[in-house]
Amino acid sequence: MIPILGLAVGVVLGLLLDPDVPLWLQPYLPIAVVAALDAVFGGVRARFDRIFDAKVFVVSFVSNVVVAALIVFLGDQLGVGAQLSTAVVVVLGIRIFGNAAAIRRHLFRA
C-alpha cells in the first residue's frame, strides 16, 4: 500500500511543483522513464512470483535509469544517440512486454 501511495505522491508532486529541469538533462528524461517503467514492471512481476526483494528493486531501478541515460549520453557524444535510444527502447520494451504478460498470467490465470 505504501509503495503505491509513494507513486501517487510522486506523480502529484511532479505535476504540482513543475520543477525546472536543466536543459542538458532533458533529452535523457524519456529514456529514463522507460527504464524506470521496466524496473517497476519487473518489481511487480517479482512480487507476483513471490521473490520480490526491496534492495534488488531499488538497485535495479536506480541502475536502470542511470545506465539507460548514460548509454544515450554516450551515444550522443559518439553521434549515434538516436540509434542507441532506439536500441534501449527496443530492449526495455521487450522486457516490459514480457513482464506485463507474466503479470497478466498471474492476475487472470490466462
Partner: peptide, 14 residues
C-alpha cells in the same frame, strides 16, 4: 520501495 516509486512518479510526470 515507496521512495523509489515516488521518484519514478516524479520522473514520469516531469
Amino acid at each position: 520501495v515507496a521512495l523509489t516509486l515516488l521518484l519514478a512518479g516524479l520522473l514520469a510526470s516531469v
